[in-house]
């Protein structure tokens, strides 16, 4: 199977390049990550990429596969047109080959204060929710922060330092709708900014590529509607 992979070693290369590989796969090699492992063990041990859980839970191996962001470990090789083109997440600074610098991405994540904020005294056991309150978190809490969405968002490409991006905003919504959180007004006020939230142009690439089937664009629209309700 033929691959075309983005290569950059900042210690030896001033500019990135593309390298072609023709790799013989085994019958057990079903996913893109299997092929990358095969390339590294049989053809080129200098190829760098992140991977950890191998089953779509950790989000480490997010990359651009044939022009679309996805997790290499859960993307089947079957059906991909050759040569299969692998590139780092668009819009992210490249550290080496398919490894990108996620510093800015996680800075935005921390900016939205991804934890419950409450001044109520801790209960003896857990803070209870009704089934309806708990159901509001569905479609939000499952985010694994792989950055497929933010790396496919043109608004994030143009203003990565200021726009929080779809992943961070989905997480913000997760805490805004949490019945146990008492900082909803502060959270909404923090996001009422030309850049932080309102750079979203509803392009919906984020929803299109989310490997967990989540909808950051719906979460973003919900945040905007709640801000509108509070200000009228």
């Amino acid at each position: 199977m033929r691959f075309r992979i983005y290569r950059l070693d900042p210690e030896t290369q001033a500019r990135p390049s593309w390298r072609e590989y023709d790799v013989r796969l085994e019958a057990t090699d079903r996913k893109v990550l299997d092929a990358l492992e095969r390339i590294r063990t049989t053809l080129d041990d200098s190829l760098a990429y992140r991977r950890s859980c191998r089953e779509g839970v950790c989000g480490s191996d997010a990359m651009n596969i044939n022009g679309r962001n996805a997790l290499a470990c859960i993307t089947p090789l079957e059906g991909l047109s050759e040569p299969i083109t692998l590139a780092p997440l668009p819009g992210f600074p490249v550290i080496r080959d398919l490894i990108v610098d996620m510093t800015q991405f996680f800075a935005h994540y921390h900016e939205i204060r991804p934890y419950l904020i409450t001044d109520e005294p801790p209960p003896e056991r857990e803070r209870l929710q009704t089934p309806e309150e708990r159901a509001k978190l569905d479609g939000l809490y499952e985010c694994i922060l792989c950055a497929c969405c933010s790396g496919f968002c043109p608004s994030y490409w143009w203003n990565p330092d200021k726009f929080i991006g779809p992943a961070g905003l989905l997480q913000a919504e997760r805490f805004i709708v949490d019945s146990r959180d008492r900082a909803t007004a502060e959270r909404l006020a923090f996001l009422d900014d030309v850049y932080k939230l309102y750079r979203c142009r509803t392009i919906m690439n984020c929803t299109e590529v989310c490997p967990k089937g989540l909808s950051p664009s719906r979460a973003i629209e919900h945040i905007k509607l709640q801000q509108l309700r509070r200000s009228t």
Partner: peptide, 12 residues
């Protein structure tokens, strides 16, 4: 609504 909020342009 703050004067320089993102929401103003959104509403307009």
């Amino acid at each position: 609504m703050r004067l320089f909020s993102g929401q103003r342009a959104f509403v307009v």
